[in-house]
Write a protein that binds this DNA or RNA. Sequence first.
DNA 1: CGTTGGGTTGATCGACCTCAATAAAAGTGG
DNA 2: CCACTTTTATTGAGGTCGATCAACCCAACG
Lengths: 245, 245
Amino acid sequence: MLDVQGSDAPLTICPNGNPSSECSHCKVRALSICSALEGDEVQALDKITRHISFAKHETLFAQGDLLDAVYNITSGSVRLVKLLPDGRRQIVGFALPGDFLGLSMSERNGFSAEALSVTATCQFPRKDFSALLDAKPHLLRRLHSMASHELSLAQDQMVILGRRTAEEKVASFLLGLRKRWARIDGSTVRAPLPMSRQDIGDFLGLTVETVSRMMTKLARDKVIVIVPDGVRLLDPARLEALAET
Amino acid sequence: MLDVQGSDAPLTICPNGNPSSECSHCKVRALSICSALEGDEVQALDKITRHISFAKHETLFAQGDLLDAVYNITSGSVRLVKLLPDGRRQIVGFALPGDFLGLSMSERNGFSAEALSVTATCQFPRKDFSALLDAKPHLLRRLHSMASHELSLAQDQMVILGRRTAEEKVASFLLGLRKRWARIDGSTVRAPLPMSRQDIGDFLGLTVETVSRMMTKLARDKVIVIVPDGVRLLDPARLEALAET
DNA sequence: CGTTGGGTTGATCGACCTCAATAAAAGTGG
DNA sequence: CCACTTTTATTGAGGTCGATCAACCCAACG
């Protein structure tokens, strides 16, 4: 694990304006909602920010709860989980550094958000953030553009869930994730997998066993290599062919 | 079919400001994006509006094309289609009266939009509409709120596609559609189905045959009645139980 | 009246699930 | 650091739900 740190300590770090965590030093700023703001505007955002970390498997917010804060992920990763009454689980997305949780600014959460590893966030009270949206129209445009992108990803996922085979599902998943990591850390062949096989299955509408089988098949065919905490893409072109994109 | 009209005539009706089609007389205004605007503001929208109708199976815009206009549906219905290279089809949504196409305001379309029956729209040039968004922040907020709602529906659909059985899929589909029609025409048991069984299958990740089988099963169990152009819900409570919502 | 496009129904098949066993990691406490 | 438990991943054997293939019905329409 990359982000390991003394994990008994309270996980709230530097509430409000610790210099070392200021937006100006933020590594994911270019990817985040914050990129809509410049100079002194950032300070308005900084004022309502609380820097909060979550332990592995800790819940940021739960399905059905009132949404009283929105989050910007600065490190770590998060799974977005929808649960059926009978316990079946569907993961509707994974949030990586730079991603924003609460794009909809809606009253209630449609899903739970659970940290996959130690995860650092900027938390903004929903009301304050909403007020800022009213004051800064280009922040709202940025929010809308991020939500639109999310909608587009959701529609792609609908194609994957509805019309693709198990092998295609796993292949597209790895490609999609690799692409997202590339924006974050620039790596072009490594795709860290902070989530379990079960999580991947619940994202792709498959069982753990099928995910595992498809991964080993891809590895046997020398398209990927399975490494600790992720995979390495040996033959991205073959993988894209398999994904039928 | 409800909306049949002389269909050889050119389908563009009353371009720009025909009094009979003014926003003030619009039946779906309360449901539409337009509800964000009041009085004289509506006129600014009216100025950039072209009223355009489409014949059954006519294309509003195609997957991959540049999006040069956005649409408000005033009557009829539209399917939103994503096509895989090998011909497999996934429908990512159906647009009904009051719905807005182009929520994302993005450069390119992720899907094609095809009229299911004769469909009337208000068309807005993308650039003009974008300018209006800059001028009227509450219009942007309304757009964002509609996009958020759409995202939430897409996530519900992901659960349906990934984790529900064929019967549950069809049951949730009918319930969801009934709910949407209720907002439009207030009807509480009737659910018109302007789309074919094939379309329903491509929306739910099923084949035509399975959709047909599940519909007849629901009808045999006296949960629904199949009527011309749709279904009537006999026992909404049973249907909700079957949908495992 | 033949043709065409949906829709329904039946028989068979296969991709993925289920159940079960094993293997490999990751914690846990001494 | 090493036994021990717990969790996660892999692999195998067999079953099932929905797909596939095929026939048929029926309404719309030239």
